[in-house]
Design a protein around this nucleic acid. Structure first.
Length: 203
DNA sequence: GGTAAGATCAGC
DNA sequence: CTGATCTTACCT
């Protein structure tokens, strides 16, 4: 089982997921943009921006479980976002999927997103990506390496990733834990969270 | 028991 | 820039 290849720190796992293939629900995509997230103080990668920072809670239990599972959460009460869990059982770590390039099933993705959405934007953004792939909160915790799962991942692919600061977070906003494939039109434009302190400020 | 903020997105 | 919409965490 190659979920073992995700038994590493979040940034390394992010690098391994870049260029990987995700298949399920009539669509096949390549991952082109991700963000790494750590865990609480006292664990290997304390990360104030992570959902797991305050310890195991209601929604984030999957983040503390074994690698290779899907961790979904609802954002702003509206969108669903998806992470791939990394590290080891008991240690929190995950990689947020931020953008994908549709390889096949673009018609299915287009139907889910709406006919007016441009092709490069079909899988751009964490919420949009889940919409395009048909991922819902029902999928929280599924094993992406299990052939029975509705969504499955295959590692291996490009390794020419570029790193920069994370998008949307108000804490630890300067940490360069976002990675993407340079030149890909599906990658979202960087914009700092309006709630984040000025660059370089401690928080 | 109340409230504010949030790993977002689309439309002005 | 703002509204939509709801869950969680933290406060009194």
């Amino acid at each position: 089982m190659s979920a073992r290849r995700l038994s590493v720190d979040p940034l390394s796992a992010a690098g391994r997921l870049l260029g990987a293939t995700l298949v399920g629900r009539g669509v096949s995509v390549m991952i082109v943009e991700v963000e790494a997230y750590g865990g609480p103080e006292g664990q290997p990668w304390p990360d104030a921006a992570a959902h797991s920072y305050r310890g195991v809670g209601g929604r984030n239990a999957v983040m503390f479980g074994p690698p290779g599972r899907l961790y979904t959460y609802r954002s702003h009460g509206i969108h669903v976002c998806a992470n791939v869990v990394c590290a080891t059982d008991g240690v929190a770590g995950a990689v947020l999927l931020r953008a994908v390039a549709i390889e096949s099933g673009a018609d299915v993705a287009q139907a889910r997103r709406g006919e007016s959405v441009r092709p490069a934007a079909l899988g751009r953004g964490p919420g949009n990506l889940c919409s395009a792939l048909g991922i819902t909160m029902e999928d929280n915790g599924i094993d992406l390496f299990d052939g029975q799962s509705p969504i499955q991942v295959t590692l291996g692919g490009k390794r020419d990733g570029v790193a920069g600061p994370r998008v949307g977070v108000s804490k630890a906003a300067d940490r360069p834990w976002r990675m993407w494939l340079a030149g890909r039109p599906e990658v979202s434009l960087y914009r700092r969270s309006p709630r984040a302190p000025a660059p370089g400020e401690s928080d």
